[in-house]
Amino acid sequence: MTTCLESTALRSLTLLGNECDRLALLDFKKRITADPLDVMSSWNHSIHFCSWVGVSCHRSTKRVLMLNLESQKLVGSIPPSVGNLTYLTGIKLGANNFHGEIPPEMGRLQSLQYLNLSYNSFRGVIPTNLSQCTQLKMLDLQDNRIKGSIPNQLSSLLNLKCLLLYGNSLIETIPPWIGNFSSLRFLYLGSNNLQGSIPNELGHITGLVEFIVEMNNLSGMVPSSIYNVSSIQIFSVAVNQLHGELPPNLGTMLPDLVEFYCNENKFTGNIPLSLSNASRLQILEFSVNGLSGTVPGESFGGFGT
């Protein structure tokens, strides 16, 4: 049974937490330098912060759970005080014009499950402190100006379902430990400056649906383990320096295949006849390689040799 003293203490802690959240949100608002849709006008003292546009709170505790300001044409940066919103489960700021660096204080958000900062102008590196956000299911940093390597510290994010780093300036190699992300469904590493070979360990992700490493500087052969991930629907290794032959039984190894891109590499050998077994296949792109033969069955959009 909770005593009056304990109730008062709990209430004080709740009020303190609420005030901490309110101040962090106001600090966030201060960093907004352009708001053409006037979405931040509700962020004022006459309305409780749980009713501010883009803010969602827990029904009883009134702690902030979600910050969702996607596609609002906002210009600004993220303050370090975002790390004080310790109950956050989601930050969705995609498709705006945020700039500056991603604050390392985000690593304090240990309940965070969704982080979407895609289609902005963030610079700097991926903060290693994000490794502390071990509940993350989605890490979406696509189409920014992020540089450096993929930090090894992120190997702790074992609950990831989506790792979306497409369209940045990432360098060095694809980390083999991504193969430990057994829940991963979407892996977008394309359009960066990654080099080296594709790790064999990625073939351990048995539920992978979309595998996109196109437009890098990857070399070597595609590991046979990747072709054995039968759940893959979209497969793109296009525009790299990869070589070797495609498996003759590719169509039966990847029965759910919808789109396959290996164009602008150094592949040789025959186009697999087994592709006629991939009944869902819609797009094949083989152009600018050393492949020979014809596509069996129907003509698929995007195909060329």
Rank of each mutant, 00 (worst) to 15 (best):
L160R: 02
E264D: 14
Q153K: 07
S118L: 06
I198V: 13
F98W: 01
L246M: 15
S169E: 05
P255N: 01
N120C: 07
L5Y: 12
S279N: 10
N44G: 06
Y227L: 12
P127A: 15
I47A: 00
N84W: 03
L88E: 01
G302D: 07
T86P: 07
L93V: 06
L273A: 11
I271Y: 04
S182L: 10
D21S: 06
K137Q: 10
G83E: 04
I174K: 01
K30L: 12
N97G: 05
G304R: 10
T2W: 12
G54E: 00
G179W: 04
T173L: 02
S219D: 07
V209A: 12
V239G: 03
H58D: 04
C50K: 00
G190Y: 02
K92H: 09
K266P: 13
T14R: 15
S155C: 09
A95G: 04
L117N: 09
K161T: 14
S156T: 01
G196Y: 14
R280Y: 10
L208Y: 09
G94Y: 03
D256Q: 09
N168P: 08
S81C: 10
L74M: 02
L69V: 00
F181S: 05
S231G: 10
L139Q: 06
N152H: 08
R63Q: 01
G290A: 15
S111K: 00
S292Q: 15
F98S: 00
N217F: 00
V229P: 05
N168D: 10
Y227M: 06
C133K: 00
L93S: 06
L26C: 05
E214P: 06
N159S: 08
T61N: 11
C50D: 02
P36W: 06
L15K: 12
M138I: 09
Y188D: 09
Y87C: 07
P103R: 02
L164T: 01
D256T: 09
N84K: 02
N180A: 12
E105H: 05
T294F: 10
L291G: 08
E298P: 10
I171P: 03
G107M: 03
K147S: 14
G54I: 03
H48F: 05
L23T: 01
N289P: 00
N68H: 12
T305D: 09
L281F: 15
T61Q: 11
Q113M: 08
L202R: 00
N265T: 11
N270Q: 14
N168V: 04
T134W: 01
N144S: 11
L69M: 12
N180G: 14
G297I: 11
Y119V: 02
N289C: 15
N249P: 11
E172H: 07
R123G: 15
V237R: 04
Y188W: 14
L141P: 03
N217V: 08
I150A: 03
F303C: 10
N84F: 00
Q142G: 03
D21C: 04
K73C: 12
V82L: 15
T2F: 14
G90S: 03
L112H: 01
H99T: 12
N216H: 08
N144Y: 02
E172R: 06
L291V: 10
S279D: 07
L160T: 05
